[in-house]
């Protein structure tokens, strides 16, 4: 499990995680049963002489396995935004990749961009440097998070 230190002096912190609506058990069941079925069909056809189904069944099992492994490795993805007197810190974990961006709170601007396809991008901008956030959220939640952050940043720095 990942625990995140919010840092001394944080006055605001917000964390989002994957919901991971499937249990390990369900994943094994779904991907495993698909792989098994595909393989047994491949073997069945190989037995009646049509072995070229096998390699494709094999490739597919590899693909299923990769998807399964991806799910496992991204279980603990999170995104944490903390604000203290001087900094906005965005920490995120994406699989094995861990990122931490620290921005100057006083210069940080929350930008929302909506492009024609209806996709929403929200990021913090400081001196032309852009840090995306809300990666794990749906569009609406991303927008409301941006609103929350904007409010926080505009609040006077209290003690």
């Amino acid at each position: 499990m990942w625990t995140v230190a919010a840092g001394e002096g944080a006055q605001f912190a917000i964390v989002s995680r994957r919901n991971n609506s499937s249990s390990q058990h369900a994943r094994l069941l779904v991907f495993g049963s698909l792989g098994l079925f595909t393989l047994s069909v491949g073997i069945g056809f190989a037995l009646i002489g049509a072995w070229p189904v096998m390699p494709f069944a094999g490739i597919e099992c590899v693909a299923l396995f990769l998807a399964y492994r991806w799910l496992q490795s991204h279980d603990d993805d999170f995104e944490l935004i903390t604000i203290d007197a001087d900094h906005v810190v965005v920490q995120a974990r994406d699989g094995s990749k861990v990122e931490r961006h620290q921005l100057n709170r006083h210069w940080a601007q929350v930008v929302t961009e909506e492009s024609p396809g209806g996709r929403v991008r929200v990021f913090l901008r400081v001196h032309g440097r852009e840090v995306d956030f809300g990666r794990l959220l749906v569009d609406d939640a991303r927008l409301s998070l941006a609103k929350r952050l904007r409010e926080q940043l505009s609040r006077p720095v209290d003690s």
């Binding site: 919010a6 605001f12 917000i14 794990l136 409301s144």
Partner: peptide, 19 residues
């Protein structure tokens, strides 16, 4: 319906270190 947008676990919290 845009039900209270159900994001994948989306929590606003105030950590204990806040003064």
């Amino acid at each position: 319906t845009h039900l209270p947008t159900p994001a994948p676990y989306h929590s606003f919290e105030t950590p204990p270190t806040v003064k």
